[in-house]
Simulated assay, not measured.
Amino acid sequence: MSDFAAGRSVATVTLVVADYDAAIRWYVDRAGFALTSDVDLGGGKRWVTVEPAGGGARLLLARAEGAKQIASIGSQTGGRVAFFLETDDFAHDHATMLARGVEFREAPRHEPYGTVAVFADLYGNLWDLIQLKH
């Protein structure tokens, strides 16, 4: 039993990007996310979030500043799959994403937990498009 509130959830995850507008275009136009906020914070900073149409955690698209952050663009998890985009219609979403120019790194495969294929975002971060078995 937890001492914490039952309503807690991971709501937003930061993704370091090179350019706000390029990242927005890729996530909205290619991956099918919705732009949920784009607020000018002054000094060249913006609060930019996108989220999948079905909900779930938002991505905060944070423009890299400084050599350390710039070096992490595209490899925030050292080359491992960083994010998991769940779908209830893998075949449809896979075909749509391919048609929109998303680069899949493998053919879809069937695993005991579901159907999955790895794709890369515009910076090379790896994602799983996955339809879980229920």
Rank of each mutant, 00 (worst) to 15 (best):
M1N: 13
S2N: 05
A6V: 06
A6P: 02
S9I: 00
S9G: 07
V10A: 11
V10Q: 14
A11L: 08
A11P: 05
T12P: 03
T14Y: 13
A18S: 12
A18W: 06
Y20E: 13
Y20N: 14
D21N: 14
A22Q: 08
A23F: 12
A23T: 00
A23Y: 03
A23H: 06
G32F: 00
F33P: 14
F33H: 05
F33G: 02
F33K: 07
T36N: 08
T36C: 02
L41T: 07
G43Q: 15
G44K: 15
G44A: 12
W47D: 15
V48F: 07
T49H: 12
T49N: 15
V50Y: 10
V50Q: 14
P52R: 02
A53D: 02
G54H: 04
G54I: 00
G55F: 12
G55I: 05
A57W: 06
L59D: 14
L60V: 00
L61H: 09
A62M: 05
A62F: 00
A64Y: 09
A67G: 03
Q69Y: 03
A71H: 13
A71C: 08
A71Y: 11
G74V: 05
S75F: 11
G78C: 10
G79P: 08
R80H: 13
A82R: 07
F83V: 12
F84E: 14
L85E: 10
L85C: 10
H92M: 10
D93K: 02
D93E: 11
H94K: 05
A95D: 02
A95E: 07
T96I: 03
A99M: 06
R100G: 07
G101R: 01
V102W: 02
R105D: 04
R105I: 00
E106Y: 05
A107K: 01
A107H: 01
P108W: 00
R109G: 05
E111R: 15
E111C: 15
P112R: 15
Y113N: 03
Y113D: 02
G114P: 04
G114R: 09
G114T: 04
V116F: 09
V118H: 12
A120F: 06
A120R: 02
D121N: 03
L122T: 00
G124T: 04
N125T: 04
L126T: 04
L126F: 15
D128H: 15
D128K: 13
I130P: 02
Q131C: 14
L132S: 03
K133N: 11
H134P: 10
